[in-house]
Every structure is written in C-alpha cells, then in structure tokens.
Computed example of a mutant assay.
Amino acid sequence: MRASVDSNRCQGHTLCAMIAPAAFELDDLDGRAAPVSEVVSIEQQRLVREAARSCPERAIHLADDPDTAADAPHTPDGGDHGGR
C-alpha cells in the first residue's frame, strides 16, 4: 500500500499521527502531516487505513502497491476508503 497526504487539504488536526505515529510525521511550523514513507509497511497498514478514515479533511490518500498487494490485508468490501 502507498500513502500520500494532500497538503492543500490537510489542516493539521494531527489525528493521523495520533493513530499511526510511525507512519505520519507532522510539520513543526503548521502541524500538517506527511507520510514517513510513501510505501506503508504491512505492519502499519491497519493503522494507516484507520488514520485515513479518521481524517476530517479526507487528506490522506491510499493506493494499492502492486508489489505488496498480495500480502496486504483487505477490507471486507475491497476498498481502502482513504480517497473519499
């Protein structure tokens, strides 16, 4: 899975970093988030999905990584819900 944060939408609510602190870092000046790494480790995927669902601005976007998609856990409906 790959994660990105739309810096134009992120308002620095910091929920993502509270939910998945190993996956998101916050800017020291404005608190806006950025992924620590574009590629999300298997161990962090559940928390990153939760962070994306919890973002009030819907600024976190998730995409399947073809190299790890076979190993990644899937939601029951097959969607990641990060882009809504």
Rank of each mutant, 00 (worst) to 15 (best):
M1L: 14
S4I: 08
D6K: 10
S7T: 15
C10D: 10
C10W: 01
G12I: 12
H13C: 15
T14P: 05
C16F: 09
C16S: 05
M18V: 15
I19L: 02
I19R: 08
P21H: 03
A22D: 15
A22Q: 15
F24Q: 06
E25A: 09
L26G: 06
L26V: 11
D27T: 00
D28Q: 11
D30Y: 00
D30S: 05
G31T: 06
A33D: 03
V36L: 09
S37V: 03
E38W: 02
E38Q: 06
E38M: 05
S41I: 00
E43W: 05
E43M: 06
E43H: 12
Q44A: 09
Q45K: 07
R46G: 00
L47S: 15
L47W: 04
V48S: 07
R49M: 14
R49A: 04
E50C: 00
A51W: 01
A51R: 04
R53L: 04
R53W: 08
R53G: 03
R53K: 12
C55E: 09
P56S: 03
P56E: 10
E57P: 03
R58L: 08
A59R: 05
I60W: 07
I60Q: 00
D64A: 14
T68E: 11
T68L: 09
A69I: 13
A72G: 01
A72K: 04
P73L: 13
H74D: 09
T75G: 09
T75K: 00
P76K: 09
D77C: 15
D77S: 03
D77I: 11
G78L: 10
H81S: 08
G83Y: 04
R84P: 05
R84S: 03
